[in-house]
Simulated assay, not measured.
Amino acid sequence: MDHNLRFSTSSNTDQGSYKLLELPPELYKLLEESLSSEGGPSASSFYIKGQPGEDAVLCTQDKTYAIRSVSLSNSILVVTSPPDSDVSSESEDNSFPNIIIRDQLHEILELTQAIPKLHKLNTLLKGREYGEDEEDNDDGMNVEQVHDGSQDIRDFTYTDAQAMIQASEAELNRGLRERRILRINEILRPISSSYLNKIIQFILNTLAALSLDHDSVPVEKLCTTLADEHDVPRIVSVQVMGWFGSVSELEGRWKMEVDAVVREAGLGILKDAQDRSLDRDNLISTWKDLVGDKFASSVSLDLLAGNYLIAPAAPYSDHQVVKYFSISSLPVDPAQRFADLFLTRSKWKNEDIVPFLSDIAVNSKERDKMLLKYARATTNAEGVWYTSRAQYNG
């Protein structure tokens, strides 16, 4: 069908107003399902996030996508039907409908699933830790003002995190949980490691003393005991339960996730000795004593993957020592991450290095690409080993 192709009378102001976004299959399907749902479009939403100086990302309810500009070899015209004010009465041929050129595009925006930028939480919440010595208020927690020495720090809220952290809602909530960040009256406070370790011990001791089934713990009974005997505010203990299991509000019961609690107990032992190496057998023995006979069988160094290094106590010795080495202390930039890893060790076994890459790769395929880019692989009777492709001076 023939048309009259005309430039818009506002083409100068329209230029640069349009962007062409290419949706990956999973987002296209999500959008299509949302638009075709009964009763009109559903609540599926996309958000563009980014502070000045940051590359923008697109977030869905549960994923984050990096936005990358890709140049086009041929320009694409953005055209629309004309509004009444944009139709010239002096059309060369009024028998053909008009199409108005609004803009010319020389690039498209490409989306690639990305790691949420949760590491900013560490900086934004620095100096805001909640510890055992907090002064209680009516809610069982002082959240009016955080103090770092003599300098007051403005409260950092969940709404602030939503605006400043490039992550989807689900990823942000998971990040707060994994980083052990309390949320009280919408104010965010990371709980101190030492205090969390004590609460874990209090919980394990209470379960044993009251003969409570860890698969069905009465929430109110545990909260009351922790508050009365150990001064742990209910608002804190309920969130700690949520971090290490599932809380049923309807039934008022907590189902403890054994591996998560045992892992945190072991991590506490490592952190307490982070400036020195621990004898492997002594660590395991201390760890089992801490969690008690009931959960001792769940103790395994595999639970602490990404938080320790293990090495012979001496050259050619079968005796091993364990030292705290956390993934959270490593840079988030892949090149810097590998540089730090190879400065720590010149040679890594595949199974040893993989846990320290889990937070910078979306999936195993992307992780393997990073290993190919930054490391050299060699195989011997012991398995696959990686060494650096670049030389770093210690």
Rank of each mutant, 00 (worst) to 15 (best):
D2V: 14
F7M: 11
S11W: 07
S11F: 12
N12K: 09
T13V: 06
T13H: 04
Q15I: 07
L20I: 08
E22G: 11
L30D: 06
E32I: 09
S45R: 06
F46E: 01
I48K: 00
E54N: 02
Q61A: 03
K63H: 02
T64E: 00
T64V: 04
I67M: 05
I67V: 05
I67T: 02
R68E: 09
S69G: 07
S73E: 15
S73W: 10
S73M: 14
N74L: 08
N74C: 08
V79M: 08
S81W: 07
D84S: 10
V87Y: 02
S88E: 09
E90W: 10
S95T: 14
N98F: 08
D103E: 08
L105Y: 04
E107H: 15
T123E: 14
T123M: 10
L125I: 08
K126M: 11
G127E: 06
G127Q: 06
E129I: 08
D133S: 13
D138C: 06
D138T: 05
D139I: 10
M141V: 15
D148A: 11
G149C: 03
R154Q: 13
A167I: 01
S168P: 00
E169S: 01
A170M: 06
E171T: 01
I181A: 02
L182E: 01
L182D: 00
N185V: 07
S192Y: 03
S192N: 04
S193L: 05
S194W: 05
Y195S: 00
I199N: 00
Q201V: 01
Q201Y: 04
I203M: 07
L207G: 00
S211L: 08
L222Q: 00
L226S: 05
D228A: 07
D231L: 04
P233L: 01
E251L: 08
G252V: 06
R253K: 09
E257M: 06
V262K: 00
A265Y: 02
L267S: 04
G268Q: 01
L270F: 05
R276T: 12
S277G: 13
L283V: 01
I284A: 06
W287C: 04
W287S: 04
K288W: 11
K288S: 12
F295L: 14
S297G: 10
S300T: 07
L301Y: 09
D302Y: 05
D302N: 10
L309H: 08
I310D: 06
D318C: 14
H319D: 14
S328K: 15
S329G: 14
A335P: 04
D340W: 15
T344W: 13
N350T: 13
E351N: 15
I353W: 03
I353Y: 03
S358L: 15
D359R: 12
A361E: 07
K365W: 14
E366W: 09
E366Y: 12
D368S: 15
L371M: 13
A375D: 11
N380L: 09
A381I: 15
Y386D: 11
Y386E: 08
A390C: 15
Q391R: 15
Y392F: 15
